[in-house]
Design a protein around this nucleic acid. Sequence first.
DNA 1: CACAAAAATGACGGATCGTCAATTTTCATG
DNA 2: CATGAAAATTGACGATCCGTCATTTTTGTG
Lengths: 205, 205
Amino acid sequence: MSEAAAIEPIGKRERTKVANRQAILAAARRVFAQMGYDAASVRDIIRGTELASGTFYNYFRSKEEVFEAIADDAAHRFKPLLRAARERARSFEDYLRSAFHAYFAFISEENKIDGRPIDERRPHVRSDTPEMMAVYEEVRQGLEDAIARGLAPRIDADYLACACIGIAQEVGAAMLRRAPANVGAAADFAVGLILKGLDGAPRRG
Amino acid sequence: MSEAAAIEPIGKRERTKVANRQAILAAARRVFAQMGYDAASVRDIIRGTELASGTFYNYFRSKEEVFEAIADDAAHRFKPLLRAARERARSFEDYLRSAFHAYFAFISEENKIDGRPIDERRPHVRSDTPEMMAVYEEVRQGLEDAIARGLAPRIDADYLACACIGIAQEVGAAMLRRAPANVGAAADFAVGLILKGLDGAPRRG
DNA sequence: CACAAAAATGACGGATCGTCAATTTTCATG
DNA sequence: CATGAAAATTGACGATCCGTCATTTTTGTG
């Protein structure tokens, strides 16, 4: 066993710290999905772990902070996908399509993990965590960059970023309601609408 | 005082019932705005009225139900504005502009009551109340009607309605962040984007 | 091994929750 | 106007939750 520990040189102190934090977050995901965010209590969450009630407050100040950590984590995992879409894009249209496709695939996968056919447990969250603001900033930067390169007209990048995010959220939610979710079709719709408006959106059939 | 009561022929029983309900809703608005939705308790709400704690549960089952009633009421008041925009519209572009203008003016007016930022006044999970679903249906009908009349291409009306709602929500929120809120500019942006895409959105100046 | 720092524990006072039997208010009827 | 039933209000109650904190246990170091 002497060589195994060398791979992870961190001490047990830090190891259990991240393990406990992850245990709380995992329990919170289960509890929120099962009984709903509002009905869930800090005690419900901590009961889903092996920890004592007081220990919870060593990691989070409240149930809301746990929720924000979950949302922040999702944004943190999504951000590199968005960044990659920007860097690999060979055109503005390509960027838009990749970005929307990535988002729709992401929420499609995230809701699959929740497993439960519970309809309304999706984190349509308006609480602005640092990573969520970073995602917004990434979107805005991507759009402003395209404007600066002359790939898009000089319009209000802030409003445009908000519009893109709003479309992504609402069309994404509608896509999930349709079974099975068609990620490509949803992305085509969003990109077509943004690029050319009504005439750019795919005809239905 | 004999002629004043004749205007409202309903009995006192029903009168106090609606009065108490309104008192609870009014207190809830104040409490949510002042201390935030998450921190607020049923006791906080009922303390804002002249009623006893048990009376609350004669009107609502929980804090969440109070919020849904507030949201439902807002949707109920907004719906006729949307309907009017559709009926008075002389063109599809006119309809869109009136609808967005109405929404932006509505939320601008609604958020004039001061207190905590808007995000903290509502729960993290979105709830679809009957009146909110009715508003969505009104939007979808308006768009589908325009498509049927040949005023808009035959695209997915469901996705389009979701896109419009998403744009309205996010651009509306961004508009409120800018002080003072410019309702007309926000509406112009949304309409331009939807009708003609990026090229249709107003250039920034 | 000893000792200090860090973390976990669970009990505690205070507050909230939803219920419910008792009380008050409303209203129809004689 | 009196009266009794139905409806609504009240506040206390046991159960639970909240956040704290003194105590205990665990971890890292010399």
